[in-house]
Amino acid sequence: MSALETEAEPTATSSGFMRSATATLQHARYTFAENPVSGIAFALFVVLLICAVIGPAIVPYSPLASDTAAALKPPSLQHWFGTDQLGRDMFSRVVVATRLDMAIAVFSVALVFAMGGVAGIAAGFFGGWIDQVVGRTADTIMAFPLFVLAMGIVAALGNTVTNIVIATAIINFPLYARIARAEANIRRDSGFVQAARLTGNSEMRIVLTQILPNIMPIMVVQMSLTMGYAILNAAGLSFIGLGVKPPTPEWGIMVAEGAGFIVSGDWWIAFFPGAALMLAVFCFNLLGDGLRDIVDPQRRT
C-alpha cells in the first residue's frame, strides 16, 4: 500500500499543486495591482528586512559611539536623523534597532502561533475537557487589559528581553486559540471531514491532512496582522522602562529617551525612532490586510 501511495500521490497532487500555486500567484498579482497600497507595504517590508539583516553593517556610525561635541544636533547631511544628547548618530541607532524590534515580534508571534494554534485546534476539533481548559485559560487572560497583563508578567518574571517575548506571546494567546478553535470547530463535522472519516482516516490524520491545511492560511494572515501589534506592545513595554536597557538601540526606549527633549523643541530624537516604529507597524497591518484579501476575498472589510 505504501508503494501505491508513493506512486499515486505525486501524479495526483503535484500538477494540482502547481496549478493552485500559479492561481494563487495570479490572484496575488491581481490583488496588488488593484490595491497599490499593498505593494507599497511590501516594499516597506523589504526595506525593514534589509535593515534587520544587514543594518549594523551598513550604518555610517556605531550606534553606541558618543561624541559630546556633536550632541543634540538637528538632522543634517552628516547626521541624517540628527544626534542625541550624547552625540550618538540617530540614523545609525534607528537602523540598528530594527533587528531587535523585529526579532522580539517574530519570536513572540512564532511562539504564540505554535501554542495558540495547537491548543485552539485541539479544543475545536476534540472538544470536551480540552476545550474547557483552553477556553478557561483564554478567558482568564482576556479578563486582563492585555498591555497591563504584559506589564505584570514582565515585572514578575524579571526585566529581560526574553520575558518581553514571553509576555507578548501570552497576551496574544487567546486570539490565536480562539481563531484556531473556531476554524477547527466549523470544519469538525463538515462534509469533507465526515467523508475523510468514511475513507478510514484516523482522527489524528484528519487533523493533519484535512483541518490543518485549510486553517493554515487564516492563521498566517493572523500572524501578519498580530506582528504589528507585537511590535507595538514590545516597544510600549520598553518605553516605560521594561525589558531593553539603555544604551541598547531599540525604538521604544529611544522614544522614551527623546521624550524629555520634545518640550524644548529637539524633536528629532523621539521622532525618527517613533516614525520607524509606526511605519513598521503600518507595514505589517497593510500586509495583513492584503494577505487576507488574497486568502479570503469574502472577508474583505
Binding site: G228, G236, G252, V263, W267, A270, G274, L277, V281, F282
Partner: peptide, 22 residues
C-alpha cells in the same frame, strides 16, 4: 482605521505635544 491601530500612543502623544505646545 489602519493608521490608527499603527500609531504608538506614546509617539502620537509626543507629536501632539510638540505641535500644540512647543
Amino acid at each position: 482605521a489602519t493608521a490608527g491601530v499603527s500609531l504608538p500612543v506614546f509617539f502620537s502623544g509626543l507629536l501632539l505635544v510638540y505641535l500644540f505646545y512647543y
